[in-house]
């Protein structure tokens, strides 16, 4: 098996254009919540490839001079799929000038769309966003909550799915159906994730709240690069402690991360 370990982000990216992994107009997932758990050095390497017209799937958009903010400064991003973009003047300016397209997803919907995409699930129903602009143009359907049905969620008037007649139909349903919105799974051409530790197979361990979107993104892209702080030997990560199994990861780069803090808050 070819090694997955690379010495630097630029080496890990060196042949990706010729391999067709990096191309203009591609979709890329980038892990992190705020600046916590972002693959900061991989973002810089992606910028340096000069790729243009990116669709970025990332919970946030970095700050002006760090994280995805760097790719906004160079206008390499055409569209963001995010839940919250916070304080980023570059983002705001490009958005207001119509240069940047934004699709806001509720954070849980975004996380679940990525999880679903990685799990081969094309679509799912969720109550989040029902009756709001998020549901506009999407299929909706009244369903009972999973906790209200016997043997699964039910469709009003049609008894229990697959158990009609047997379970007594509508008579044993409890509670009012509520509206659910059909959301689709997400899958990208490339995912850049940040983990704390990796072994040569690509088994990953995340650290504290730097985990966030990284594990799902590692499953939901055709090519996955992990930025890590530590590479250990095969077998040095207890099999029970692996967060992302190594099969999901194509390349691993050990870096020294700056790990910038957005809101340093301390107690006296």
């Amino acid at each position: 098996m070819a090694t997955k370990l690379f010495n630097s982000p630029s080496e890990a990216f060196a042949d990706l254009k010729s391999k067709g992994v990096i191309r203009d107009g591609m979709t890329v997932m980038v892990g992190g919540f705020g600046l916590c758990g972002i693959p900061e050095q991989l973002i810089i390497a992606l910028r340096d490839t000069g790729v243009k017209g990116l669709t970025c799937i990332s919970n946030n958009a970095g700050v002006d001079d760090w994280g995805l903010g760097l790719l906004l400064q160079t206008r390499q991003i055409r569209k963001m799929i995010s839940s919250y973009v916070g304080e980023n003047a570059t983002f705001e300016k490009q958005f207001l000038q119509g240069e940047l397209e934004v699709e806001f997803n509720p954070q849980g919907t975004l996380a679940e769309r990525i999880r679903a995409g990685g799990a081969g699930i094309p679509a799912f129903y969720t109550a989040t966003g029902a009756g709001t602009v998020v549901a506009e143009g999407k299929e909706t359907r009244p369903l009972l909550r999973p906790s209200q049905g016997v043997g699964g969620a039910t469709i009003p008037g049609r008894g229990f799915a697959g158990r009609e007649g047997k379970a007594g139909g509508a008579a044993v349903q409890s509670g009012e159906p509520r509206e659910y919105v059909l959301e689709t799974g997400l899958y990208a051409d490339l995912a850049l994730v940040k983990a704390h530790r990796a072994d040569p197979f690509g088994n990953l361990v995340y650290r504290k709240t730097a985990r966030n979107f990284n594990p799902m993104m590692a499953t939901a892209a055709a090519f996955v690069i992990a930025e890590v702080e530590e590479v250990v030997g095969l077998g040095d990560i207890d099999a029970d402690a692996v967060h992302t199994p190594g099969n999901y990861v194509d390349r691993i780069v050990r870096t020294v991360s700056q790990k910038r803090i957005e809101q340093r808050t301390v107690r006296k």
């Binding site: 995010s82 839940s83 919250y84 973009v85 916070g86 705001e92 958005f95 207001l96 934004v102 806001f104 509720p106 954070q107 849980g108 919907t109 969720t126 109550a127 989040t128 966003g129 029902a130 709001t132 998020v134």
Partner: peptide, 15 residues
């Protein structure tokens, strides 16, 4: 006004 996004608010009120 500049829209910053809903973050997790829609999920919280729904669940």
């Amino acid at each position: 006004k500049m829209v910053k996004g809903m973050g997790g608010a829609m999920d919280l009120v729904a669940g």
